[in-house]
Design a protein around this nucleic acid. Structure first.
Length: 465
RNA sequence: GCCGCUGUAGCUCAGUUGGUUAGAGCACCAGAUUGUGGAUCUGGGGGUCCCCCGUUCGAGCCGGGGCAGCGGUACCA
């Protein structure tokens, strides 16, 4: 039996969990301050409630993970938090205040090929306003995005919230006389790739198509030169007036958000058959290098926009809605790269009380409890190995210190406290085995009654420098 | 889905024109040191050489077919 992890899944370990917890509470603080209410919904829903991805015989699991329950009804793991929100609002429509404003975080699942930094289970953090078509709600999403990134320690200038609108793109497509729906999709996809492929790449995709470095060929929109020229003009900054974008821009400017934080960008496209009005994207703009010295771009860490069609699927009247979603896992990767994971989010390893004499486990347990009652993270060694292995264990845990009471100390009514961090520092200067072992660096003894105070003092000293 | 690369110990890899018992470094465990983490030395545990078929007296190595992983690309709510 091989212990293996399903494709696209990963284990999350202690340090990351602590940092994520800290991040999530920071984000929630901002969303709460904006007046959004928390909501939680289940990890899976009936497939038809999630939207267009119904399993069919050819591709039973395209995009989503699905299975049938005992009634043979199809259920699917949620692939975002918006579709469940739509279901919730539709089901409780008369009970919720409108506009309904909620935030929610949780894992979502996508049955897609995983890639670097892309997994099949990842965390999103959403805020949405349902039940209003007012651009003020969209403007607020932009401000929320900016404020959240700053609260997480990303300095102004290192991120940018970019806004565009599907209505603007539609009017440009109309002006260019691109009528065929499929062709319009191809054009939008090409525009979306501008930040990666540049003007030349987009132009190829508007025409016959583009062959990339891997040898894969992407068919183009086959526009005429005149049509392509109109699209390219948009990318070169010649955008037509758009009423909604004008309204949003004006609102955020009056609220004090300058173009360094929120700005119009016609290349923002996002989900194609999903968004119906304004769309936004939060990008990290600072340069970074990975462990191989290669420069990497974090790019988009969040996005959103207006999706007026989603809730109305369940109802006869239109229910406009707008939202913003943060890719928490991706943002975490970026923040840890930036060194923006605060130290207090990491946590201090426990003090280890050594089990010197198995017959006295009760005494050691009492010492451990005394430490805990004083607010010190502590544990008695609960394994079976000898002292050397216990020291090694404490070292590997990253313990600040160990508490030792063997026969020698017991007779004298004392305990020995060994500072492992200081000891580790000293070990760099010692090469001789005997000197290392017999010198017993960085340890001292105190009377039993002063053990807790001495440990706390040691921890305070370690924290200071 | 498409293109490319790679599969040998937990990890990184070596393995001669095909030759008998498949190796190294790191990691892990133990001892040297019966009460002290590091360094050093010694020893130990670990393998379906990705799988199947074929060629051959003989395959980790050659041929064919699968599978898996990685990278890119496409799609992406």
């Amino acid at each position: 039996m091989k212990a293996r992890l399903p494709k696209g899944m990963r284990d999350v370990e202690a340090q990351e969990i602590r940092a994520l917890k800290h991040m999530l509470s920071t984000i929630a603080d901002v969303y709460e301050r904006y007046g959004f209410e928390p909501l939680d919904t289940p990890a899976f829903e009936y497939t038809d409630a999630l939207g267009k991805f119904l399993p069919d015989t050819d591709r039973p699991n395209e995009g989503v993970f699905s299975f049938q329950d005992e009634d043979e009804q199809w259920v699917s793991l949620r692939y975002d938090l918006t579709a469940p929100l739509a279901r919730y609002v539709a089901a409780n429509f008369d009970a919720v205040p409108k506009p309904f404003r909620r935030y929610q975080s949780g894992y979502v699942y996508r049955n897609e090929k995983p890639g670097p930094g892309r997994f099949r289970q990842f965390m999103q953090f959403d805020a949405d306003t349902v039940g209003t078509a007012n651009p003020a709600a969209d403007a607020e999403m932009c401000m929320l995005a900016a404020d959240t990134l700053e609260a997480l320690g990303i300095p102004r200038g290192s991120y940018c919230v970019k806004v565009s609108s599907r209505t603007l793109l539609d009017s440009v497509l109309d002006a260019a006389a691109v009528a065929e729906p499929k062709q319009r999709l191809v054009v939008l996809r090409a525009v979306d790739k501008f930040d990666r492929l540049g003007l030349v790449g987009v132009e190829e995709l508007l025409g016959e198509g583009r062959k990339d470095d891997s040898g894969d060929f992407t068919p183009g929109a086959k526009l005429s030169a005149g049509q392509a020229g109109k699209i390219m003009a948009l990318l070169s900054g010649q955008a037509p007036e758009d009423e909604t974008i004008g309204a949003i821009t004006s609102l955020v400017r009056q609220a004090g958000y300058g173009p360094d934080r929120i700005r119009f960008d016609p290349t923002v496209v996002r989900g194609l058959e999903y968004y119906t009005g304004p769309v936004l994207e939060a990008d990290l703009t600072f340069p970074a290098t990975d462990e191989n010295g290669q420069s990497v771009r974090f790019g988009s860490v969040g996005g959103g926009g207006r999706y007026d069609g989603l809730v109305s699927r369940f109802r006869s009247q239109p229910v406009p809605a707008t939202g913003f979603s943060i890719g928490v896992s991706r943002l975490y990767a970026a923040l840890s790269h930036l060194g923006k994971i605060p130290q207090e989010a990491i946590g201090l390893a426990p003090v280890v009380v050594l089990l010197m004499d198995k017959a006295r486990a009760g005494d050691y347990q009492k010492m451990t409890r005394d430490l805990r009652e004083a607010g010190v993270r502590a544990e008695m060694y609960v394994g079976d190995a000898g002292m050397k292995a216990q020291m090694k264990y404490a070292d590997r845990r990253g313990s600040p210190c160990v508490v030792i009471q063997g026969e020698d100390e017991r007779v004298q009514g004392q305990v020995t406290i060994k500072d492992l961090l200081e000891g580790s520092r000293l070990s760099g200067e010692i090469e001789d085995r005997a000197e290392w072992r017999e010198g017993r660096p960085a340890q001292f003894s105190v009377p039993e009654g002063e053990m807790v105070a001495a440990v706390r003092q040691l921890l305070a000293r370690q924290r200071k420098p």
